[in-house]
């Protein structure tokens, strides 16, 4: 979340500057691209809302300007992975306690679940251009704990990232602005534990009205997305996913409307899945959330409602 706010102004301002210059493009002064792992950001924002089933209650209490505590309660059916075609759901409930420390230079976020799972995130700006990100997940089950450290280097018109994780995971990515609107990137990774390695390429073209991205990876994944901003309030998004290995294809289309008192996201995809997500602002710092998802093919219907207080 913190990184979004930091990057957004950079991606939105450069096109305006370039418009003034018109045809003459200074290739030594290109805007900084957005990080490689976030190139689908706009499409994901409208096509992958945080859908849930059941009741959710989030409460965030700020203790002082930088420190805040969060409590969240969830009750509802949880899907259990099974071999059979129909989904099996068991009712669950859990409580999550979290602590956040937000500072312009340092961000610390911790979450503890009732069943003993813990999640910790750290983001720290070491220098003006170099940032350190770390993510750790601890569980009681053996071999399910993860840890990952990222080093992000932000250049003038490029970004590079080095990723180190447990299980001998090493990854690196680089993205470079080629023209004021187009940026190209590439990544390599090696997972020593699973003896797998891969390489991926991505391209992103963005103007202030639309964003088009494409990504291919040697794992067989092809992802294309397109987001068009229709007006100030409404944007339409579509994406296409193809996996060469498992031969599954998904295309989806969605809308994202930001009104004054609510934000509404809806999507429909080629698997027969329809979903919508409404965030209604009832009062200052009080949000009401409604989530609906219908899977016509599996006959799986999910409806959820929630409240989030604070923020």
């Amino acid at each position: 979340m913190g990184s979004y706010a930091e990057i957004l102004p950079q991606t939105t301002t450069p096109p305006k500057e370039i418009e003034k210059k018109e045809e003459k493009i200074d290739y030594m002064d290109l805007p900084c691209p957005i990080p490689y792992e976030e190139i689908h950001r706009e499409a994901l924002m409208s096509l992958k809302p945080d859908l849930f089933e059941g009741l959710r209650f989030d409460f965030i209490k700020g203790i002082n300007q930088r420190f805040s505590l969060s409590h969240s309660v969830f009750m509802g059916p949880m899907e259990v992975p099974s071999q059979s075609a129909e989904t099996i759901k068991i009712p669950t409930s859990h409580y999550e306690f979290g602590a956040n420390f937000l500072d312009p230079k340092l961000m610390l976020v911790g979450r503890v679940m009732m069943d003993g799972r813990m999640n910790a995130r750290l983001k720290c700006d070491l220098t003006e251009n170099l940032a350190l990100k770390a993510n750790a997940q601890l569980t009681q089950e053996p071999h399910m704990s993860h840890g990952m450290v990222n080093f992000d280097y932000k250049g003038k018109d490029s970004r590079s990232q080095l990723q180190l994780g447990n299980g001998a995971l090493v990854g690196a990515s680089y993205i470079q602005s080629v023209t004021p609107h187009l940026s190209l990137g590439s990544e390599v990774f090696w997972a020593g534990q699973h003896r797998k390695s891969g390489i991926g390429f991505a391209a992103r073209y963005n103007t202030d009205k639309m964003v088009a991205t494409g990504q291919v990876a040697s794992t067989g994944m092809v992802a294309l997305s397109y987001v068009q901003k229709v007006s100030e309030k409404v944007s339409l998004a579509s994406d296409f996913m193809y996996n060469y290995m498992s031969r599954d294809v998904t295309a989806s289309f969605g809308y994202d409307c930001i009104f004054r008192q609510c934000r509404l996201r809806g999507k429909i995809d080629s698997n027969g899945c329809v979903a919508s997500f409404l965030e209604e602002r009832l009062n200052m710092g009080l949000n009401f959330i409604l989530s609906a998802e219908i899977d016509h093919q599996k006959k799986d219907y999910k409806f959820g409602f929630g409240l989030s207080v604070g923020e």
Partner: peptide
């Protein structure tokens, strides 16, 4: 599908 996708949109738009 209409109920899930379009109805909330019209309500929200109208209120706006």
């Amino acid at each position: 599908t209409f109920l899930i996708l379009a109805v909330p949109f019209f309500i929200a738009y109208d209120r706006d």
